[in-house]
Simulated assay, not measured.
Amino acid sequence: MREAWTAWLGWLHATPLALAMRQSEWLYPTVEILHILGFCALVGAAALFDLRLLGVSRQIPVQQMAAHLLPVAWAGFALAALSGFLLLLSDAKSIGVSPIFLSKLALIGLAGVNALIFHTRTARGLQAWNQHVHPPLAAKLNALFSLGVWTAVIALGRLIAYYG
């Protein structure tokens, strides 16, 4: 499995797009800016929703927050994922095997599992705590986990530049 992964990374590293990412004066910084904007939208929307689950702004219905923030989070995720892939191309052979990068990917996966658990299980009783009520402990734990994981993802993303 590891050999297949490193072979794929080598192939990615040699693609014309990877070469462009390394040689263009403006492509890499532009993609990096897009990556930052993407994760700002994603993590900003997630953090606002998580804070609502932790009891901030209880006058705003949870369903209304979700309706406004979920599309922003998805758009941010799409932009961050696409631009992150392009950033990986710039040095795929080394970034792709970095424990920091792999940990970042694992945490993004955990954030997704946490969101799935929230939406498929925790939110089932949402009508009972949608507005002016403290959300249940499970929702608060989902929110705390989300805030912690996204903070770690951002920190690891920054560390890639120094140790990746």
Rank of each mutant, 00 (worst) to 15 (best):
A18I: 00
L19V: 00
M21Q: 05
R22H: 03
R22N: 06
R22L: 10
R22Y: 14
R22V: 05
Q23T: 11
S24K: 10
E25L: 03
E25M: 10
E25A: 13
W26F: 15
W26S: 15
W26M: 14
L27H: 06
L27C: 00
Y28S: 04
Y28Q: 04
P29Q: 06
P29D: 07
T30Y: 13
V31I: 15
E32L: 11
I33S: 12
I33V: 12
I33A: 15
I33G: 04
I33C: 09
I33L: 02
I33Y: 08
L34Q: 06
L34I: 06
L34P: 03
H35V: 08
H35E: 04
I36P: 01
L37V: 12
G38Y: 02
G38C: 07
G38Q: 03
F39T: 02
C40E: 10
C40G: 15
L42H: 01
L42N: 08
V43I: 09
G44L: 04
G44F: 10
A45V: 05
A45E: 06
A45I: 01
A46G: 08
A46R: 00
A47H: 09
A47S: 15
L48W: 02
L48Y: 12
L48H: 11
L51S: 09
R52W: 01
L53I: 07
L53D: 00
L54T: 08
G55I: 08
G55C: 13
G55M: 13
V56W: 15
S57G: 14
S57M: 10
R58H: 11
R58N: 08
R58A: 15
R58E: 13
Q59V: 09
Q59T: 10
Q59W: 12
P61V: 03
V62M: 10
V62L: 14
Q63C: 08
Q63R: 14
Q63N: 12
Q64V: 12
A67M: 01
A67L: 08
A67V: 05
H68Y: 10
H68A: 13
L69A: 05
L69F: 11
L70D: 08
L70H: 07
L70T: 10
L70V: 10
